[in-house]
Design a protein around this nucleic acid. Structure first.
Lengths: 344, 344
DNA sequence: CTCGCGACGTTATACGTACAACTAAAGGCG
DNA sequence: CGCCTTTAGTTGTACGTATAACGTCGCGAG
C-alpha cells in the first residue's frame, strides 16, 4: 500500500540544488567547488556550500562539465588485446598516470568485429582529449588519423608516425643482449621465431639480431607462428624436426612462443637447455611458471604505459614532451645453456 | 610569414555547421542523423544533410548528447586487476556485448592507490549508467553503494547483494567435478590451495569440496597463498614437505597456484602426476604452457562478461533480467593420475 | 559628504544536442 | 470554398556547468 520510500529514480542533485540549500547562487557553488573562490567568496560561505554539497551527496555532472569546458580529461588507449598480459600491464601503467593527473582511460578496440563501423572516437561513449596508441594494433590504426586528436605512439617507427610523439622500448638492445648471451654460450645456429612479421617491431628485432651475429659466423633462420603456445609448438616442431642442421638455440619474440618451443622440444626428445636453448620476450607470468624457467628479455611494460600517458598529457598541456626510450634487460634463467658443441 | 594552413585547433564542426551547409535547421540535422526522421523529413533533404555531415566530417559531441539525454550508454566494470587473464577475458566479453548495444565500458579501479579519494563514479571522467562489479574486487566494492546506480554483480552471494541482480559461474559444480575426478583416481588425502580465503567464492569452493568428499573417507586440508606462482610454490613446499602424511593431490583455486604447486613438487623430488596430482581453475593460457599440462576447471570467462553486461543492459532497459548460472567443466589433462596407493 | 575600491556575491550566457511544440504549405473531400 | 489531414520542416527550450561581466555593500580617504 505504502509507496516506496524513494522514488524509483531519485534525481541526482545539481549544483543548483546545493545553491538553494546553502542559500547562495549556483555560480557561487561552482566557484567554491571548483577551488577558484580565493578572495571571491568568504570562508564562512564557502564552508556552508561545502557542507550543503556533502549533505546532499552532490556530484558534478561530468557530461555538463565536459560540454562547458570543451574537454573531457579522457584519453583513448589503443592496444591489440588486453588478454595479452603485456598490454594489460601497459594499461595498468597508463591508467595509473592518467588517474594521477585527473584523466580517465578508455580502451579501443572494443573486441567486436561484427559491429558495424565502430567509431574509435566514441569508444566508450565519451569524447576524447587524446589518443595513446600501440603500433601493434594495426587494424585499429587505420581508423585513427593523427590530425583529429593529439596522438602519442607506443613503440612505433619514428619516421612513420609524422607529427605524433613516440615513446619507445629499446627492444633492439634487448634483442642484442639476448643474442650476445647465446653467442657467448657458443651457439652458432639460431632460429628466430616471430609472430608479427609484418610489424615494425619485428623488423627492429630482426635487424638487431642480424647485426648482433655479424662477424660471429653464426647463421639465423626465421620461422613464423601465431601468438599462441600451440601454434608456436607446431611451428617449432616443423622447424626443429626438419632436415638439415638443427638450430641449437631459438630466439622468440614473445614468452608465449618460447613456451611453445619448449613443448616442441620435449616432443622431439630434446632437453631444454642442454640440447636446445630458448629465449623469450616480455617476462610474463608464464616465464617463471614453466620448467625450466625462461631466459627472457624483460620489458618495463607498466613504465611503458606510464611514460606514454605522461607524454600524452604533456602534449595536451602544451608542454614539449621529452622523448624517451625505455631500457630492456635480459633476465637469464634456466632455458639457456652452453651449446652442445661448445660443451664437449 | 605565411600562417599555417590549418589553425592549430580547427574547431570541430557542430550540427549547426552541418545545418548551414545543407541549408536546413539544426533540428533537422538532429532528426536525420538520429534516424528519427521517418515521415518528418523528405528523403532528398535527408540525403543532403547526410552528405553535408560526411563532407564536413561531422561527429556529434558526446558530452552534449549525454547532457541532453541524461544518460551516457557507458557502464563501469569493476574488477580486481586486468593483468589477471581471467578478468581480462571477462572484460573482453563485457565490452563485446556492450558495443553490440551501443554501450561503452570503463574500468575501475584505476590502479593508483596513492591518489586521493578516487571517485568510482567518475572513473573515466564519464558519467555512468550502470555498474558491473566482480565480488572479487573487495576494496572497490566499499565505494559502491547499490542505491546510486543500477548494479549487477558478478559471482556474488545472492543473499548478500540485496537488490542487485547477479550472474554466477557454477564454480561449485566445477569444484565438484574436479574433486570427483580425483576421488575416482583413488586420492584420499587432498590439499586445497586457495588465494582469497576471505572471499565468497572461496567458501563456495570449499563447501563444494567438502560436500564432494563426504562419505568417501577422504581428508582435506587447506593452505593459503598469494595469487602468484612463486608464493604458491613456497606455500606448497611448506605444506607438502611438512611432517605427517603427504597429500597425494592438490586442488588449486587458480591455475597460477597450480603452476606453483608443480614447481614445488619438482623441487621436492615429486613427479607430477605420478606422485602428486594437481588441478587448477580457470583454464588460463598458462594451463597448456606448463609441463605437464594442467587438469583444470574451465570457466567461460568471456561468456561470463557477456552475460553480465547483457543483464546490466536489460536492467537499464527496464527489462527483467533472466537469472543465469554459467556452467563450468573439468578439462582433464596431464597433471592428474591414479593415486600412488591405488596404482599398486 | 562623496568617491573609489576591495570584498563578496549575483546575473546572464554559452557549450552542442534532442525533442516538444509549433508553422506553413499542399493535398483531399464534400 | 472551407476545413481537415498529411508532409516537411522550423522555432524554442532544457540538460548542468563554468565563467565573464556586472552589482552592492561598507569603509577609509580626500
Amino acid at each position: 500500500m505504502a509507496g516506496p520510500q524513494r522514488d524509483t529514480a531519485a534525481p541526482r542533485p545539481t549544483s543548483r540544488d546545493v545553491a538553494r540549500a546553502a542559500g547562495v547562487s549556483q555560480a557561487t557553488v561552482s566557484l567554491v567547488l571548483g577551488d577558484k573562490w580565493q578572495g571571491r567568496v568568504a570562508e564562512r560561505t564557502a564552508e556552508r556550500v561545502r557542507a550543503a554539497a556533502r549533505e546532499l551527496g552532490y556530484r558534478p555532472n561530468l557530461a555538463a562539465r565536459n560540454l562547458r569546458l570543451g574537454r573531457t580529461r579522457t584519453a583513448l588507449l589503443v592496444v591489440p588485446a588486453l588478454t595479452n598480459e603485456f598490454f594489460a600491464r601497459v594499461h595498468t601503467g597508463a591508467a595509473r598516470v592518467a588517474a594521477r593527473h585527473g584523466f580517465g582511460v578508455v580502451l579501443y578496440p572494443t573486441p567486436d568485429l561484427t559491429a558495424p563501423a565502430r567509431d574509435p572516437f566514441d569508444s566508450a561513449r565519451a569524447s576524447l582529449d587524446g589518443v595513446l596508441a600501440s603500433s601493434m594494433a594495426s587494424e585499429a590504426l587505420g581508423a585513427i588519423r593523427g590530425d583529429e586528436l593529439p596522438l602519442v605512439m607506443l613503440d612505433s617507427d619514428p619516421a612513420g608516425s609524422l607529427g605524433a610523439s613516440t615513446v619507445n622500448l629499446d627492444i633492439a638492445d634487448g634483442m642484442r643482449q639476448a643474442t650476445e648471451h647465446l653467442l657467448a654460450l657458443g651457439h652458432r645456429d639460431l632460429l628466430h621465431l616471430a609472430a608479427d612479421v609484418d610489424s615494425w617491431t619485428f623488423h627492429v628485432r630482426r635487424d638487431a639480431l642480424v647485426a648482433a651475429v655479424r662477424g660471429s659466423g653464426a647463421t639465423v633462420r626465421t620461422a613464423k607462428a601465431l601468438l599462441t603456445v600451440d601454434d608456436a609448438r607446431v611451428a617449432a616442431e616443423a622447424a626443429l624436426g626438419g632436415p638439415g642442421p638443427r638450430p641449437t638455440a631459438v630466439v622468440c619474440d614473445d614468452d608465449i612462443l618460447a613456451a611453445g618451443v619448449c613443448k616442441a622440444a620435449r616432443r622431439l626428445g630434446l632437453h631444454v637447455p642442454d640440447d636446445l636453448s630458448v629465449t623469450g620476450f616480455d617476462d610474463l607470468t608464464l616465464a617463471t611458471a614453466v620448467e625450466p624457467e625462461l631466459t627472457t628479455v624483460a620489458l618495463p611494460a607498466e613504465r611503458f604505459g606510464e611514460q606514454g600517458m605522461a607524454t600524452l598529457i604533456a602534449v595536451l598541456d602544451g608542454r614539449a614532451p621529452e622523448p624517451a626510450a625505455l631500457p630492456a634487460h635480459l633476465v637469464v634463467r634456466g632455458s639457456t645453456a652452453q651449446s652442445p658443441a661448445s660443451r664437449r
